[in-house]
Design a protein around this nucleic acid. Structure first.
Lengths: 202, 202
DNA sequence: CTCCTGAATAGAACGTGTTTCAATACTAGA
DNA sequence: TCTAGTATTGAAACACGTTCTATTCAGGAG
């Protein structure tokens, strides 16, 4: 339990050179994943591309799974900040949630290999990745919550709302896994969320 | 596309000696997974324990993931047959679905290592495992459908019902993944399903 | 400026999933 | 019974995640 607490989450720690190395590693990871997916993210290659030694890579990210989930965290960070600055369009909670998740889904589907790499890492992660996983989960929860209330504020949700948000997130992730692993079509993801949201937000 | 169609799914093919080998392999897999989880299922060890050569193991199951998902399929087969012979107790669809999923969850939680191995393989599986995955999905769908209607028959579900079943299955799997990967407590799984079922079946 | 210590490096080495291949055993049909 | 074709075996080799070791580097304390 030394560093990565929830407050200094996305690696805003260490010297400038260290933050720079971390950035280069995540850049290389995302580039490789975008090109060739999970299998193409090979630790030796990441280290080479980021111009750090293999041992250094492992000092920053203790496993390939940590690395990819952290990359997912960085991507979600941008998406979440977008929902914080501008209100999500739509008349009803249903409309707004669908707007948000459809937009995010389409964004992910534009880079299928990258999404495959990150989603598979996310689903494969074990307890040792709890911190990174939790960060991603919180961001997703925050975004859906904002979509439901329609405001960029992120106040406390009622217990009922929290439960609904969780179910929506679960369905979205499952649908994404289905698409990523080639078990369903791209358009199915949106359909499945629409059904779930319709059933839940009525 | 030679063998494994939906009709001859669970390996009811080949000579008696071959069916016997297949059974020994799955037995060894489940024994190892029960003892030590995903990591303990090592292909060399499985082959040794099942008394087949490593090459033979790979002839029967083209990867560790195929192997573990097939093991999950065999376990689900028994569970599904139980729902086919006896009616699921409970007054309402909600009660019956909860009875079914609670019972199944508790059964899985009694063997945490085995469940961890199978669930992680299931979530990690890519398109090449589509057949095995589909089999498991169908069994789960069938069981939930029987619980909703309250009859061991497995008639066609309406589109609405099918969508609801899918959402319930997604939530159940997500909750299970959360538990397996140490992100949530055993009792959370039931709670999450209860919320989802309550929201969906009203 | 020198020394000390933690960080970074290069590279070898290890473990396990997967592939390959030559030799042997088995089985179904003539 | 013989034979052709197929399945199984045993063993080595390969690929990639991960660990380990020896060495060098950087930057703050004195």
């Amino acid at each position: 339990m030394s560093s990565s607490s929830a407050t200094e989450v996305a690696g805003q720690t260490g010297s400038a050179a260290q933050r720079e190395r971390r950035r280069r590693i995540l850049d290389a990871t995302i580039a490789l994943a975008t090109e060739g997916g999970f299998d193409a993210v090979q630790m030796r290659t990441v280290a080479d591309d980021a111009e750090v030694a293999l041992g250094t890579l492992y000092r920053y990210f203790p496993s390939k799974i940590h690395l990819l989930v952290s990359a997912l965290g960085r991507e979600f960070e941008e998406a979440e900040q977008r929902t914080a600055t501008r209100a999500i369009p739509g008349e009803t909670p249903h409309d707004r949630v669908m707007f948000l998740l459809s937009r995010t889904t389409r964004m992910l589907q534009k880079q299928p290999k990258l999404t495959e790499a990150m989603v598979r890492a996310f689903m494969f992660a074990d307890a040792s990745v709890a911190g990174e996983i939790h960060e991603v989960g919180m961001r997703l929860t925050t975004m859906i919550s904002r979509a439901i209330t329609g405001s960029p504020e992120h106040g406390e949700a009622t217990e009922e709302e929290a439960a609904i948000i969780r179910v929506i997130a679960d369905v979205w992730l499952s649908a994404l896994v289905g698409w990523v692993t080639g078990r369903s079509e791209a358009t199915d993801v949106e359909k499945q969320i629409d059904v779930a949201v319709r059933l839940l937000l009525r």
